[in-house]
Amino acid sequence: MNKQLEKLFRLPTVEDPYQYKKVRIVDIEDLAPDHRMFTLKFTDERVSQNFDFVPGQFIMLTIPKAGEIPLSICSSPTRKGTIQITVRRTGRKTKYLYTLKEGDLLAVRGPYGNGFPMDLMKGNNVLIIAGGLGLAPLRSVIWYVLDKREDYKEVYLLYGTRNYRLVLYKEELERLRKRSDIKTLFALDRFESEEDRAWADYEGYLPGLISKVDLDPEKTYVTVCGPPIAYKFIGAELIKNGYHESKIFVSLERKMECGIGKCGHCQVGYKLTCVDGPVFPLWDTKNLPNMI
């Protein structure tokens, strides 16, 4: 090629958002059947110290040979050094992940998405509503708020799941139950055993707990994550109890291939879950078609 012309083809360098950082599995904990928590540490110590995120953000995890999947970070950015993820075994890639052991390598891109508006919530009550595995991203919110306790007023956790066997982070929840700086109410769908009865505060679905919360809706931000079908009922119940649409934040799940607005899969209405979400105010979920 002509030299003069060639000069015009020089490439600017941009950071490659597709490149990942390596992490090592430093701990594995079985939380419930097919629910496992992995603690990950970046192989590069500097990355470990600098990796910052907002509760509610997610990562793209490379499972060697199997591919990438989006996962919420379930640890809090207030506790640096490692990050944690809780993974449900459901399909090909998560099955593959379950074959890995402590010491094995994985890789991480991110953090991605917007996360919960922790700054906006400062000076207010925080009501955390988690259904099933939805507790994973909200665990990040819980520890964040508790570690910065003076920034927030009252903190309330509602958690519901099918039965006691599926309860996640059992010991942690026991400790939370005993703390005085956070109120908790736990529900199980239907009491099927003595264990269920002994553990839960309530028999029934999550929305049934909302009227039991004694927070001033005017001064409360609500964070919600759970199975998609629960959102309609939780949203309706919150509104009925006086909470504000613009102060209720829900985290959505969609198919994701890239996490950075390039693969198109995560569209909800006209927005992209990966860059415009995954956390949306309830207002959005009511006004964007097909959102919940």
Binding site: T62, P64, K65, A66, G67, E68, E257, C258, K262, C263, G264, H265
Partner: peptide
């Protein structure tokens, strides 16, 4: 149209 899917092939 730009939608793509990503696969890891050993």
């Amino acid at each position: 149209c730009f939608c793509y899917t990503s696969v890891d092939i050993p």
